[in-house]
């Protein structure tokens, strides 16, 4: 390749990737930058209109808005609920996805394929409908209670409008992505590696821990990261299925923004959620770096 062609390839590359980058810069980068500035009291620039609408805000540089939010016990109850739901849902999602993947790999039959195929179905169902379905299935007149009642339990629990209901819903909506990631990884492990491990006397458990799991660290981490981020950023599911208070941060942000008309405080919560998500993304970035170096 000549120097001129490489230069033109470079230019073409930059030109072609610029449209999505421009969209991201203007509609994600800009609002986040101004959002952070607004939480710190800056009311100029693109914050001019919102600061006219807001009911209660701190103006002039400072951390007044952060003080407002962090001093509110309802916020911390919501943070605790959010973290609890995130951790429990992620563990359940990834664990169940692994079980489905193992079943598909080692029971390669129609049944295992059917189970894996059906577990991906919620990906194609709008979240509002999933939430509505979970609400009515686990509600006071839902299937769950009806079946337990028929089995002789006179007062079965109601999971609609509870944190448990949110977890059930998160498991339902986030399972498909994790199943896709992890089954694809587990299916890709060469059979001869597993055979070799068995030949040297590795038990099933050892083959899982020392062959399958290490070879699938990256898909597992991707599934975990995206589940964490999805739960942290969810609004629909906790809004429809969750309790009034303390609900997750999504509905709290919406209520603070719209009903209370306190956009500055809502944006403080956004920044808080972004920081949580940034921590959750560290393993993903690390795993991809490792993959790029060819270690995994």
């Amino acid at each position: 390749m000549t120097g001129r062609r490489r230069l033109s390839e470079r230019t073409r590359g930059f030109l072609l990737v610029s449209p999505p980058l421009a969209v991201i810069a203007v509609f994600i980068g800009l609002p986040i930058a101004f959002g952070v500035l607004y939480t710190l009291g800056y009311t100029g620039g693109f914050n001019d209109t919102i600061s006219l609408i807001a009911q209660h805000q701190s103006t002039g540089w400072g951390i007044g808005a952060y003080r407002d939010v962090f001093g509110d016990s309802l916020f911390w109850r919501s943070v605790r609920a959010t973290v609890l739901v995130t951790v429990v849902s992620t563990v359940l999602v990834v664990g169940l996805a692994w079980l489905i993947a193992l079943q598909l790999r080692f029971r390669a039959g129609r049944w295992a394929r059917l189970v894996a195929g059906v577990s991906v179905l919620p990906m194609f169902i709008p979240v509002v409908i999933g939430a509505n379905a979970i609400l009515s299935c686990y509600g006071s007149a839902g299937l769950f209670r009806t079946v337990l009642h028929a089995l002789g339990w006179s007062e079965p629990p109601v999971f609609a409008y509870t944190v448990t209901g949110i977890i059930i819903g998160q498991l339902w909506t986030n399972l498909p992505f994790a199943v896709l990631m992890i089954t694809s990884g587990v299916q890709g492990v060469p059979q001869n590696l597993l055979d070799a491990a068995r030949d040297v006397g590795a038990s099933r458990w050892q083959r899982f821990w020392s062959v399958l799991l290490p070879l699938n660290t990256i898909p597992t981490i991707i599934a975990m990261t995206f589940t964490v981020i999805s739960v942290l950023g969810s609004f629909t599911l906790p809004f429809i299925v969750g309790p009034t208070a303390p609900n997750l941060l999504g509905p709290l942000m919406e209520g603070t923004y719209s009903a209370l008309n306190r956009p500055q405080q809502a944006e403080v919560m956004s920044v808080f959620v972004f920081v949580l998500a940034a921590f959750a993304s560290v393993p993903y970035v690390w795993a991809n770096r490792r993959a790029a170096r060819g270690v995994a």
């Binding site: 693109f46 919406e254 923004y257 956009p263 920044v271 998500a277």
Partner: peptide, 15 residues
């Protein structure tokens, strides 16, 4: 995709 969706929408609304 790494920005929790609803947090992002809250900041977008102000813009």
């Amino acid at each position: 995709n790494a920005f929790p969706r609803f947090g992002l929408f809250i900041t977008m609304a102000s813009l």
